[in-house]
Amino acid sequence: MSKKKIWMLGLFFMFALLPQTTFAMHIMEGFLPAKWCIAWGVFTIPFVLVGFLSIQKTVKEHPKTKMLLAMAGAFAFVLSALKIPSVTGSCSHPTGVGLGAILFGPTAMSVLGLIVLLFQAILLAHGGLTTLGANTFSMAVVGPLVSFVTYKIVKRANGPQWLAVFLAAALGDILTYTATSIQLALAFPAETGGFMASMVKFMSIFAITQIPLAVSEGILTVLIFNAIKAYGKDELKDLKMFSKEV
């Protein structure tokens, strides 16, 4: 085999094996340089603070919501440990970003997301302590905000509910990965072409693996949401305390 063929074979295997990596969206411990760990941590603080204050207010008015919030957090953690059958044939884990944002609103999600990510780092070794800020920013701030805004826009334009849920979940997923790619690209600009080239590199890897996953998560979220709506009307009413309207 010529050298070129070996390389092509190697690349083929690399991409063939890629989609099986699960939890690829959590930046692992120690991967980001110290200054970016601090920077993303600082960017995340205001969002978490706003979320925390709003939770504090809600809990003071309705003490029962504390248990509900805790259940929501545990639900998000357990959901992310499930496997979705993906369109490409491999399995992946749902992020639960879209569902959480629609059910509990983006403010509560920032705090719950932070806690869930901390547990994932300590209990499952997915993500890390130093990269907690960066991961929280992409998965608990950007993702839920995008999902929530998408959901609202489609609803306001009188789009069907399933489309709103699907787009919210899929876009929330994709934007989460985009945010992660930007974080990685900023930390590791390419030698040739700088930030943009590096961004293209990370994005293309994420796009290959994550777009099918985003679609599967969108479909799954629609199914889950419909089932919850059919069987849990009363529960949904109570959740309005967090996101005003569902």
């Binding site: 929501a72 357990v78 059958p85 199914l223 889950i224 919850i228």
Partner: peptide, 12 residues
């Protein structure tokens, strides 16, 4: 999976 997740949500 949808049945599982929604039941889980309601149970939770």
């Amino acid at each position: 999976l949808a049945a599982l997740a929604s039941t889980l949500f309601i149970r939770a």
